[in-house]
Design a protein around this nucleic acid. Structure first.
Lengths: 366, 366
DNA sequence: AGGAACGTTGACAGCGCTACCAGCACCGAC
DNA sequence: GTCGGTGCTGGTAGCGCTGTCAACGTTCCT
């Protein structure tokens, strides 16, 4: 029922103005800048609008003002837990503002990103949130020519297009490896999937830390371009074991992989952390619930999204934040899976109280 | 750089028309219904548009045509894996169409949903996707009065507003319990969190199956309004064990809870499935990777999203699908965690080959 | 007292596009 | 030959709102 399209029938600004006894333009101002009206007219317009149930026509507003109230968001994946947290932050922060979110999925393709960017920019968005710092030259040029504020999220790097909020994946990986070193682990494997730029930088951080310690060995690194999954974690770990049976720790580029490694160890009856220590990345909720609890690098995903949206909206509204590049840092959350190496290791006795302890990091920030 | 707002400077339809040597209205038709033009003009307009890099102004189009090309989507959560799969389906299916997705998060509140609905409807969306069948009376009235196609997703029920796509959570839960019965389990606990309408219907299905078998006991049911999490699965399971130490199976309202139960069992050294069988819901990816592999009820989330979007777009374009109510069904994916009960249970020997087998269901559909 | 400065208001003219309807050429049918 | 149909094209008139600028009354300064 009621499926057919009908004529407008909506009440317009002019009606509100008439009822309020003011000119349309004054009514218009009420909705955009109420302070500019005298108190008397303000209340008259307000009650008239309420009485009539007036809802502004955004299309007309956009047409007349040459500006939309849309924030474009480009993210590489809709599946990934990481981005759903970021997105939630973005949506939460934009709620209540007059801006609406236009989301698009680049599927980890910078060419697709370029295409979507062109599409977005053509609609003159009020602002833009893009993921990462690895745009094509063309995308980069478009972004720099865009006449709206832009926030790059997920990581920080040199030459921001405009604003930037994230953390150093490189440093975060180094901190994870430093932690494993501190616990006495030496032969540390790396397991990574999808290998998008941020995962690549985690690998770079791992490699640099291992090289500095004189422990790097290419055979310790197992990666694939395949999208990440828990199952894949087990598969890659199996590969790693095949190449280097003597590893004493594994650093996974994300928590799903770590969970897969945990299960694979259980399957193979490899004790964590006694035989092999395990560290993940992102600190998803299940890491604290696993048995043993799993060490991970906590990243501030929700905060990243909400802060990005907040900064963007402020910039759109002409109140550019003083800090335009924000490093949200990370924390290694030490849990049982990476407990200190010892000869007479007994399960469950991992340095009483150490589990779940947060440690300040050499390279970390907050 | 380039942050300031500039004047338009865009090329308009009129320019394209001029270059092509046709009237603006003819050029306009080219973009909406190319077949209506003679081949000669069609190619002229096409090349003119390409040459100038013309991009239509959607605001002007919306204003003039009294119609937007926006599909509103209302979902209860951005965090939940379940909805991210559905969303991915929606975005994938809408990609390439001229419709864009406008997403809003009701946070499991039907009052919030009503508010958002009012907001959406005021913008005259081309179509609407709403979650579930439990709207407020007010929302329901608005939906019925809306002059656009609407799809209700996630579940099916009586009195669709317009179109509907989902499955019966009640039947799915019954099928899960029937499976546990078939495996010889009797004292089956229910663990549920958040208790949104769909989880409630899973509980209803559980209750009815248990009552039919004369096995229902209120103490077997542990629920909470708290949002779901893996950790919570362990907590609720602990509650359940406290009340009913003798349970021989647990049916979890979702897979995160099931994972939490798995870990808690590991912590307590309870053997799955020998001492307690475990069944989850949704069949997230990790269920097949866990040790033991975890039985779950597979739901077609991605397909639900993509089909909903496809049906909606067809209806918008005037090609209403013949079937407007679609039951996407479910499947119980039998894995190790629910293997048949036996006296001399030995770990790992759960009926060779049964793991991962898909079974057709009494009440299930495909 | 004269004038500048300010706060407030309104008239006017579009923004870029499409709905609507009219017009034209051409065809076949009566 | 007149009529009505069909296929294509164009003119006109807005859609509902806001940018711009002018005008008004009031206050404050010199």
């Amino acid at each position: 029922m009621g499926r057919k399209r009908t004529k407008s029938g909506k009440i317009r600004l002019a009606e509100v103005a008439e009822l309020a006894g003011v000119s349309p333009i004054t009514a218009s101002r009420f909705f955009r800048n109420p302070e500019a009206l005298s108190v008397a007219k303000r209340t008259r317009v307000e009650s008239a609008a309420r009485e009539l149930g007036y809802v502004p026509n955004l299309a007309a507003r956009a047409l007349a003002s040459h500006r939309t109230e849309v924030i474009g968001v480009l993210i590489p994946s809709l599946t990934n837990n990481v981005f759903s947290d970021v997105l939630r932050g973005i949506y939460d922060a934009s709620e209540g503002s007059r801006y609406s979110i236009q989301l698009s999925n680049t599927r980890y393709s910078i060419l697709q990103e370029e295409k979507l960017l062109r599409l977005f920019l053509a609609q003159k968005p009020a602002g833009l949130i893009v993921t990462g710092i690895d745009q094509t030259a063309e995308s980069r040029a478009m972004l720099e020519a865009a006449d709206c504020p832009i926030v790059q999220i997920m990581e920080i790097g040199p030459n921001p297009v405009d604003m930037m909020i994230g953390f150093s994946h490189y440093d975060a990986a180094r901190a994870a490896i430093a932690h494993l070193f501190a616990q006495g682990h030496r032969k540390i494997g790396f397991v990574g999937a999808r290998m998008d730029p941020r995962v690549q930088r985690r690998l770079d951080g791992y490699v640099s830390a291992m090289k500095e310690a004189g422990l790097f060995d290419q055979r310790l690194v197992v990666t694939t371009a395949t999208p990440t999954s828990v199952t894949l974690g087990g598969t890659l770990f199996t590969d790693l074991l095949g190449r280097e049976p003597g590893i004493d720790a594994v650093f996974c580029a994300n928590d799903d992989l770590a969970l897969g490694v945990l299960f694979e160890c259980r399957r193979r009856e490899i004790a964590i952390p006694e035989q092999i220590a395990l560290v993940g990345f992102n600190d998803l909720e299940f890491m604290a619930a696993a048995v043993p609890t799993l060490t991970s690098v906590r990243t501030n995903r929700y905060e990243m999204g909400s802060t990005a949206a907040t900064m963007l909206i402020e910039a759109i509204d002409g109140r550019r934040p003083e800090r335009t590049v924000l490093d949200l840092g990370f924390r290694v959350i030490e849990r049982q899976s990476s407990a200190a190496r010892r000869s007479d290791s007994k399960p469950g006795l991992t340095g009483a109280g150490a589990a779940n302890k947060m440690i300040a990091l050499p390279t970390g920030h907050d």
